[in-house]
């Protein structure tokens, strides 16, 4: 159990994909102008990462090592397409709002990275958990970025007006550059809160 606790803590904070590993930030910049979009994107990524890691881990003993990347990409794309079909069929408004970004989950480095780094060497259940935790870490940062962007850019949170009419919307927050500022500030704050431990064996 101690092990699964560590996996969850790693995914959410110590090894958070966005502000610690700095991967998967393209979509973190793209879809974070509304909190609802970010939430759905995050849940989608959790689903894809968790099940891809589970599947990769299940068949890791039969997969020839030199073609494992091909197999991983195949598995990831299957889950991404499942998600895309699901959104199109049962949540068409969200499918429209996220547009091409659902399909682009496949290129999110978090999934490939976790499949290669974790699922390839661990048994199915911890892999599934690791996928959930990494996805949750990503979702949490996305929501944080979206919170500030939507609040400053639209004066709303999850579509509910909170700042009133006197608030002047910051258009830059809605546009991609706004995400750069917010994300950079979040990474800065998060890294000052928990500075990276010195790697054993000395650093350069």
């Amino acid at each position: 159990m101690a092990n699964s606790k560590k996996i969850i803590k790693d995914g959410l904070w110590d090894d958070n994909p966005i502000f610690r590993q700095v991967i998967g930030i393209c979509s973190a910049l793209a879809v974070t102008n509304l909190m609802l979009n970010s939430l759905i994107m995050g849940l989608g990524l959790m689903f894809v990462t968790a099940f891809s890691e589970l599947t990769v881990s299940l068949i890791r003993k039969f997969t020839p090592k030199h073609i494992r990347m091909m197999v991983q990409v195949l598995i990831i794309s299957v889950y991404v397409i499942i998600l895309d079909i699901f959104l199109k069929a049962y949540y068409p408004e969200m499918s429209k709002a996220l547009g091409p970004y659902v399909g682009l989950i496949i290129t999110n480095c978090i999934i490939m990275g976790r499949c290669e780094a974790f699922a390839q060497n661990n048994s199915p259940l911890p892999s599934f958990l690791d996928g959930l935790a990494s996805g949750a870490g990503y979702t949490f940062v996305l929501l944080l970025v979206a919170f500030f962007r939507e609040l400053l850019g639209f004066g709303t949170i999850f579509g509910y007006p909170v700042l009133g009419d006197s608030w002047t919307n910051w258009t830059i927050m809605i546009m991609p550059p706004g995400a750069f500022f917010i994300l950079a500030i979040i990474i800065w704050v998060a890294r000052s809160l928990s500075p990276e431990e010195k790697k054993e064996g000395g650093t350069i």
């Binding site: 997969t63 499942i82 079909i85």
Partner: peptide
């Protein structure tokens, strides 16, 4: 031979899952 057979089998397996899902949802979409 093994990697090729492996890849073919796994691709066929996942593609058929997707084909089935697509068939099931095509009308809804």
């Amino acid at each position: 031979g093994y990697p090729i057979i492996f890849m073919v089998v796994i691709t066929a397996f996942f593609t058929s899952i997707l084909a089935f899902l697509n068939y099931k949802t095509i009308d809804v979409i």
